[in-house]
Design a protein around this nucleic acid. Structure first.
Length: 364
RNA sequence: GACUCAGUAGCUCAGUUGGUAGAGCACAUCCCUUUUAAGGAUGGGGUCCUGGGUUCGAGACCCAGCUGAGUCA
C-alpha cells in the first residue's frame, strides 16, 4: 500500500517540486495550504507574496488539481493570531527583535500538520524546505541542505524529535537551480521562473513598522518619540519610538554623524535608542533561552565547539556552548556583529544542527 | 559700542592664485533575502545669506546690510 504524505504547499516552486518528487517516488499526496492571516492588502498586491497569502492559496489549489492531489486549506488564523502575531508584537514592545518564522514552524505549522496528518492517516508530512533529516541511533536531527545558499535549517531548529520523525524534506539533497530545471522539465515553466518569496507572511508590504502601528496604535502612540543618544550619553536626535528600531540597523535613522551610525542598544524602559559605530556592535558572547537540542540530548559541562549562526544567511562564527541551567551560554572565538536579543542563534557541527535558541542577553 | 571670524546640498564641512561647485553622513530606488538587519549597486538634490559693485566672467575680490560665534571696552 502506498505511503501517504501530507504536503505543505505554498504555491511556490519549492513545495510544488517537492510534491512532484514525492509523487514520483511512489507516495500518495494530500496537499494542504495554511491560511494564517488575511491582510487587507493582499488583493491589491500583484507581486509574488509570502508563504500564506490568498493568492498563493489559490495557486496551491490550482497546482494540486493539475498534479492530481487532494488539497485542502488549513485555517490557522486563530492560533496564528493568538501566538505568532501576539508574540511578534510583544517582542517589539519589549525592545527585542522577533523572528516569527522560527516560532511559527515549531509552534504552529508542525503541530497542526502532524495533527492533520493523523486525522488523514498520513504517514508523513513534507515541506519544500532546504534541509535534510538524519536519523542516527534513533535520534533525529537536521543537517543543512546541500544547497548551502538556500539552507533553511536556521528556521527549523525548533522542531522536536517527534516532528522530525514524521517529516520528509524532498529538496534537502538538491540545489535550487536543479529545482527550477525540474519544474521546467515537467512543464511548469511559469512556476520555474517564479521569484523567491521573502516577506513575513502576515506583512505583505514588508513594512513591520506599519504593521505595528496598525496592530497596536494606542501603545505605539503612548510610547511616542524618544532620544537617540551616543554611547557617551550625548543626545543626537529624536526617534519615532523604540519598537521601530533593531540592533544593527543603519538605514532610516535620519541621523547624520559624518560616519555610518548603527543602533547598538535599545532601552524600552526609557524609550532610548543608542547609536554607535560598527565596532560598537561587536559582541563576544551571549545567552540563549528556549533551547531546543537536536543532534545530542544534552551539552556536556565542559562545553562543545560549534559554528554559531546569529542570523539567517550568515556564515557563522566558531565558538563554544555551555549548559547554563535551562539556557546555554555561548562564547564566541571571534566577535560577531549585531547580536540581537529576540533573534535566534543556531549551532552547527559541520552541516549538522546541534540545536538553537533565542538570544536573551549579549556580552560585549 | 568697536574689532575678529563665520554664513556653500537635509547635517558637518572642502572649495587651490576669480571661469557657473565637491566629500562624508543622511535620503530614495534597485539587488540580495521565507525574520529584523547588515551588505552591494545606482540616483535625487545646492537662490554658494541678501543687495550693490569690479571683471569678458565671482562661491571666491570690494562696499553695505542681515544672522551666528567669539574677543575687547
Amino acid at each position: 500500500m502506498k505511503k501517504r504524505v501530507l504536503l505543505a504547499m505554498s504555491g511556490g516552486i519549492d513545495s510544488s517540486v517537492a510534491g512532484m518528487l514525492l509523487s514520483e517516488q511512489g507516495y500518495e499526496i494530500h496537499g494542504v495550504t495554511y491560511r494564517t492571516y488575511d491582510s487587507v492588502k493582499d488583493s491589491c498586491i500583484s507581486k509574488e507574496t509570502g508563504c500564506c497569502t490568498v493568492d498563493s492559496m489559490m495557486e496551491a489549489k490550482r497546482l494540486s488539481e493539475k498534479l492530481g492531489y487532494k488539497h485542502e486549506i488549513l485555517d490557522l488564523r486563530d492560533s496564528f493570531k493568538e501566538t505568532i502575531i501576539k508574540n511578534f508584537v510583544d517582542e517589539y514592545l519589549k525592545g527585542r527583535t522577533p523572528n516569527p518564522c522560527v516560532v511559527c514552524n515549531s509552534d504552529i505549522k508542525w503541530g497542526e500538520l502532524i495533527e492533520r496528518a493523523n486525522e488523514l492517516n498520513c504517514d508523513y508530512i513534507a515541506t519544500g524546505h532546504y534541509a535534510r533529516i538524519i536519523n542516527e541511533d534513533g535520534r533525529f536531527y537536521l543537517a543543512k541542505g546541500i544547497d548551502e545558499n538556500k539552507d533553511q535549517t536556521y528556521f527549523l531548529y525548533g522542531l522536536s524529535q517527534d516532528d522530525l520523525k514524521r517529516t520528509l524534506f524532498p529538496l534537502g539533497g538538491l540545489k535550487k537551480d536543479k529545482i527550477r530545471k525540474m519544474a521546467a522539465e515537467r512543464g511548469f515553466v511559469k512556476l520555474s521562473e517564479k521569484k523567491e518569496s521573502q516577506e513575513i507572511c502576515f506583512i505583505p508590504d514588508n513594512d513591520y513598522r506599519r504593521f505595528l502601528t496598525d496592530e497596536v496604535p494606542e501603545q505605539i502612540q503612548e510610547i511616542g518619540d524618544g532620544d537617540f543618544v551616543l554611547t557617551n550619553g550625548e543626545k543626537v536626535g529624536t526617534h519615532k519610538g523604540y519598537p521601530f528600531y533593531t540592533i544593527g540597523q543603519r538605514k532610516g535613522l535620519g541621523v547624520a554623524l559624518g560616519y555610518p551610525a548603527y543602533v547598538v542598544d535599545i532601552d524600552a524602559g526609557t524609550n532610548t535608542v543608542t547609536l554607535g559605530t560598527k565596532d560598537d556592535l561587536n559582541g563576544a558572547g551571549f545567552v540563549v533561552g528556549n533551547v531546543n537540542l537536536m543532534k545530542y540530548d544534552q551539552i556536556p559541562a565542559e562545553g562543545l565547539e560549534v559554528n554559531i549562526k546569529i542570523r539567517y544567511r550568515n556564515q557563522g562564527t566558531m565558538g563554544r556552548i555551555y549548559p547554563d541551567g535551562k539556557n546555554l551560554k555561548v562564547d564566541l572565538y571571534h566577535n560577531a556583529s549585531a547580536i540581537t536579543p529576540g533573534q535566534s542563534a543556531v549551532f552547527y557541527e559541520n552541516d549538522d544542527v546541534v540545536g538553537g535558541g533565542l538570544i536573551l542577553s549579549v556580552r560585549h
